[in-house]
Simulated assay, not measured.
Amino acid sequence: MPYLVSDVMTRTVVALREGAAFKDIARTMRRWKVSALPVLDGDHRVIGVVSEADLLPKEMLRDPDGDPDRHGRPSGGSGLAKADAVCAEDLMNAPAVTVRADETVARAARVMARHRLKRLPVVDGEGVLQGIVSRTDLLKVFLREDADIAEEVRRDVVPRLFAVPVEPIRVEVRDGVVTLTGRVRDTSLVPVVTRMVRAVEGVVDVDCALSGPPRRPDLDPDLPDDAPTARADGAGAGTVV
């Protein structure tokens, strides 16, 4: 079974209420050494996220020369609104990008990459906060032992495609790189097994050196050169033995 978000997420989460004050948010980020915090409603559902970037517009207005526009006054209504915001509800990005606890680690990684986020709040089916998953958490799958990976490939992958190989298929794993050697009856399945092995949690790469059955020897030797042929001298012409 693939790793789920619930297998790697952090369950102790610091969160904010909608009315959390600006300075309290800044203090909380500093105390817990985090760059973003989920915002919850009264039922503990995640309704948004406040990040360090959401706090910066207020600081950008503090221009030492007294000309806020010259040195990067927040542009657009959103930037100006956050510069004037004093609580989490006004600072947060909503709706929040979240991931379900029962989704796969691969799915969480895709969501994180697509939205260019460093962490995701983890919720249940009702949107209630369950934990948080970070990039570091997603990389935990690559700490899996080589022997554990090899056992899964031998038990769950190879028999599904090659129940009766021509010769035993050898599976070796070193630093997460899986090497497959041996002979199989149907080489068209080699790309399939490569994809399946690569999908195993913790696999870094796959070196598939599987080959087909050995070629059979030629069982029909050439006819001898002195085989009888038709005569071409007129005697018995047209007779072939």
Rank of each mutant, 00 (worst) to 15 (best):
G72T: 03
K118V: 12
A108S: 04
V46C: 07
V157P: 02
V99N: 00
I132P: 01
V193M: 07
P159T: 04
L56W: 02
P221V: 09
G125S: 10
R154Y: 02
M92R: 04
L120S: 01
R144T: 07
V49A: 06
E152K: 11
R110S: 07
R116F: 09
F142A: 04
A96W: 13
A147I: 14
G236Q: 05
A83V: 02
E201N: 14
F142M: 05
C87H: 05
A36Q: 08
A85L: 07
M92E: 05
I47A: 03
D218Y: 15
V240G: 13
D84E: 15
D24A: 08
L129T: 02
H71M: 07
A108I: 04
E89H: 13
D7W: 13
A85P: 03
R116N: 14
L161M: 12
P224Q: 03
L210H: 13
T10R: 11
L40Q: 08
L120G: 05
V158P: 02
E152L: 07
D69M: 06
D137I: 09
A147H: 06
G42R: 09
T136S: 07
V197R: 01
V193R: 01
D124E: 14
K118D: 15
P165H: 10
G77E: 14
A101C: 04
R215P: 14
P64T: 03
D222F: 08
S188A: 14
V13D: 04
E151N: 13
L16H: 00
V184M: 13
V173F: 08
L117M: 14
G19V: 14
V197A: 01
M92D: 05
P159M: 05
E151V: 13
G76N: 10
V166I: 06
D205P: 07
S51V: 06
D43G: 12
E126I: 06
G76H: 06
D124C: 04
G131Y: 04
E201I: 05
V105H: 00
T104S: 10
V141E: 02
D65Y: 10
D175K: 15
D233M: 10
R144A: 04
V5T: 02
T194V: 02
V164Q: 13
A53N: 11
V206W: 15
E172Q: 12
E151Q: 13
G77T: 11
R73K: 12
A101P: 00
G131E: 04
A109M: 04
R144P: 02
